[in-house]
């Protein structure tokens, strides 16, 4: 009897030790999983564009709540990580385009026609940015237009030609290559009160003309 019990207690003790090691490993595994998934997903959700609250108007994306008191926590985190200072509601509205009116990504090797009208605003500016979010080109290049500088046609409409090579009229210079984006800022606009004013017909279209091979 005794001889038969001894190996069985040894077996039980070894099993308990194994179980302890197993549960410790599982706790470490659960904690590591929590850290990796939690921090990784938080990082992923708070870099780049604001993840929530986007309103699309033609090729343009607008985040009407980014500059308001009730911006969601993800928007606040994106603002904090990028160091951005968003335009406040009542100050203006920012429209960002990374695609043309047909949904194709904006490419510096192509040329684009932008116009003919914008939503109502006291002033607006249209700027072309490179892939890193800097105004495209050097300081003396034409990378932006304001509503006061633009040449208009007889009906009051305008046409901005964005291309790498010079064009007559309102020419906006694109960089040599790479992705570009356009930002239209409406300063002091009634459109910021509600995005119902952001009708796809009221915002300027971005039409691709031709592309260099």
């Amino acid at each position: 009897m005794v001889a038969a019990r001894l190996p069985s207690t040894g077996f039980l003790r070894a099993r308990a030790r194994r179980r302890g090691a197993l549960s410790a490993a599982l706790v470490v595994y659960a904690l590591l999983l929590a850290l990796a998934l939690g921090l990784g997903s938080a990082h992923w959700a708070t870099h780049g564009e604001y993840p929530f609250g986007v309103v699309r108007a033609g090729p343009w994306s607008v985040w009407p709540r980014a500059g308001s008191r009730d911006a969601d926590p993800y928007t606040r985190a994106v603002i904090a990580r990028s160091g951005d200072i968003p335009l406040g509601v009542g100050e203006g509205l920012l429209l960002h385009a990374t695609v043309d009116s047909d949904g194709r990504p904006l490419d510096a090797r192509c040329s684009y026609r932008i116009g003919p009208s914008t939503p109502q605003a006291r002033f607006w500016t249209l700027t072309v940015y490179d892939a890193a979010g800097r105004p495209a080109g050097a300081q003396d290049r034409r990378n932006s237009f304001t509503s006061s500088e633009i040449l208009r046609d007889a009906a009051g409409g305008f046409e901005i030609l964005a291309a790498h090579e010079p064009r007559s009229g309102n020419w906006l210079m694109l960089p040599d290559s790479g992705r570009v984006s356009f930002v239209l800022r409406l300063y002091d606009t009634p459109a910021s009160a509600g995005s119902a004013a952001l009708d796809p017909r009221a915002v300027p279209g971005i039409h691709r003309l031709e592309c260099a091979p």
């Binding site: 939690g38 921090l39 938080a42």
Partner: peptide, 14 residues
């Protein structure tokens, strides 16, 4: 069970 706990903790961490 450990995976489920990990996922719940991950949500809280996030």
């Amino acid at each position: 069970l450990a995976t489920l706990c990990g996922l719940m903790l991950a949500g809280m961490t996030h």
